[in-house]
Amino acid sequence: MIPREKHILMLQRMMRIRFFENKLIECQKAGEIVGALHTYTGEEGVAVGACVALNDDDYIAGNHRSHGHPIAKGGDINKAMAEIFGKEDGYCKGKGGSMHLADFSIGILGESGIVASSVPVATGAALTSKLQKKDFVSLVFFGDGASNQGACHESMNLAALWKLPVIFVCENNQFAVTTSYKDSVSVDHVSDRASAYGIPGVLVDGQDVVAMYEATEQAVIRARSGEGPTLIEGLTYRYEDHSLGLANVRRDGNYRTDEELNDWLNRDPIEIHKKFLLSQKFATKEEIDKMENDEIIAVDEALEFARKSPYPDAKQLFDDLYTDPINFA
């Protein structure tokens, strides 16, 4: 049984991601932020269900679609927003930006702009848990596109071989930029590949945050007991294009239809979970409205924080490259 407060927490975090991303879309359209922006709207159920099933001292790592994971893990949206604005008070002092949010203090080992590149890293964190006989697990998010990278296969083999406490979470949002996973993955489901490594492969409805939580919980139990990794595939959909602005790029035809998008919009993870909470009487309509209002305010405050934070000083350009600075001048 999932405790009530976890159910509430999951709704709250999904809302936070949604409002955070929508705010960024506004800022991007207004030209206030620069660089690439890969939004997570539509996929909230996957990251939130997975992260809420973890302990605070467990680790996660992610990818370029990077804002949802740290928020799901409980990251500070002020620092996240400031980082996306390239400001000094950002998570990475403005050096990482949108694709590289990280908060080592709460187990967020960082997002990676190279797809699948975080998979070996998370596997390595799990290796530490095993070698040091610790109890923590690590969990890595990657997409259906990344599942075709060698790094994924090498890591799954290694983790299975060494029985490492790592959970591989494939967020199958169905498209690698514009290429459908059906045109790039040789099996019906990414999770089918688990059998090749002798590990469990679980296909989950990613729009159902509770289902994601439950699948992850099982994988965590397995990992902590030393039985090794699990591959979870959360079937989901991104509401926006691969990155904002891509819709404006002249391209040949549409890779997905309005009809398809509408079908998925009708299965919105936040709405599904709201209905679930109401039906289970975990929350009233008023409580949910209040929560929603609070999250909107929190995101507005994060935006204010980011806007007010100074840009990093030129003196910081060479900081943090090495522990002891090396002068290349």
Binding site: P120, T123, L127, E154, L158
Partner: peptide
């Protein structure tokens, strides 16, 4: 790539 990445993560 896998085990050097694992070294990094560890």
């Amino acid at each position: 790539n896998g085990f050097i990445g694992a070294a990094v993560g560890s």
